[in-house]
């Protein structure tokens, strides 16, 4: 089965198993989430390097820090929403010491549609982005998840990887061979307006650009799988040319990807912006598409906001 056919969490699990073949220092921890995060795929191949700490996210984070201090490269996996429970442990045990712990938050955004707001992490980019030393990566699809997990092993300090459950629109599979941490990608070139995304919104942005194209608006689609550090050179090269910038994320509009872009633009040179995301907790639904519709994160809405910005100029 090719990576494209896997779900994002399966891609993460497969990447860990493969990484375990390549590196003997990789260890994996879960908080009773071996099956749900698909870390099981690592456990099956490397059982001696797999640790289940029970439903104890704080212990998972602190013990991962200890393993890192003992010279290992720990990957700790649980639902992104529950990773947040260990926040202060992560701050003081991992970020403050700049230890090479990799946290993989699965079921991020709306992807755990069935379980509702308690399980839907919509603020994780914001809280990890603000921690010194952390690198934050939000892959768009399974292909990128697989490559990003492998690439994360090369990062010096701690990493937060945001991964969805099952839903994904394959959008990066042919885009590049090697994932480069900190690099943004031009998915579609354009000159009137730029649509910037991170994570699973990329597929929607591509659709939005098509809608705009049919209306004679040339829209660029820029993908920033690494939210921190941000690819400032890619951002500034487009920011200088286009009339406006739309950011789209499956996350709060506060403190997330759009905020990171706005902060950067404050130095590069401000542009009319629309920050698209959500402003409250999630909802239970039967499938993610219902939630994207409900929260207004659709290709049509993205195109409409882009058109507004072009019209303003």
């Amino acid at each position: 089965m090719s990576v494209e056919d896997l779900t994002p969490r399966e891609a993460a699990g497969k990447a860990l198993a493969d990484l375990g073949d390549l590196r003997s220092d990789v260890v994996v921890l879960v908080a009773d989430t071996g099956e749900t995060t698909r870390a099981r795929l690592f456990a099956e191949r490397h059982p001696e390097r797999f640790f289940n700490v029970g439903i104890a996210e704080q212990a998972m984070a602190a013990i991962a820090a200890g393993l890192a201090a003992a010279g290992f490269m720990p990957y700790a996996l649980t639902f992104a929403a529950f990773m947040e429970r260990a926040y202060e442990v992560i701050r003081n045990s991992i970020a403050r010491l700049a230890l090479p712990v990799r946290l993989i938050g699965t079921h991020a955004g709306f992807s755990d549609t069935y379980d509702g707001p308690s399980h839907q992490a919509l603020e994780d980019i914001a809280i990890f982005r603000v921690l010194p030393n952390f690198t934050v990566i939000a892959p768009a699809d399974s292909c990128e998840t697989y490559k990003a997990v492998l690439a994360s092993a090369e990062v010096k300090g701690p990493v937060y990887l945001r991964v969805g459950r099952d839903f994904h629109i394959p959008a990066t599979c042919g885009l590049y061979k090697m994932f480069e941490v900190g690099k943004g990608y031009v998915v579609i070139d354009g000159r009137d307006v730029a649509i910037l995304t991170t994570g699973q919104m990329l597929g929607f942005a591509v659709e939005a650009a098509k809608i705009l194209g049919e209306k004679g608006v040339s829209a660029a689609v820029l993908h920033f799988p690494t939210v921190k550090p941000l690819d400032l050179s890619l951002l500034s090269s487009y920011a200088k040319e286009v009339k406006g910038i739309v950011t789209v994320e499956e996350h709060m509009v506060y403190g997330g990807f759009g905020s990171a872009i706005a902060e950067a633009l404050a130095s590069i040179g401000p542009k009319p912006m629309a920050i698209m995301g959500v402003k409250g907790f999630g909802k239970t639904a039967k499938n993610p598409a219902e939630l994207y519709e409900y929260f207004g994160l659709t290709p049509e809405n993205i195109a409409a906001r882009a058109e507004e910005l072009v019209a303003l100029s």
Binding site: V27, F51, A62, G66, A68, A69, A70, V89, N92, L97
Partner: peptide
């Protein structure tokens, strides 16, 4: 992190050193 004579610098906030110690012990055994 740069404090001399100490092995663990995640303490200060209580309980964190206990998890760190367990991780170190797991690592040493591994």
């Amino acid at each position: 992190d740069d404090t001399p004579f100490t092995d663990v610098s995640n303490s200060g906030s209580l309980g964190l050193g206990i998890g760190m110690a367990v991780g170190l012990a797991l690592g040493l055994r591994l």
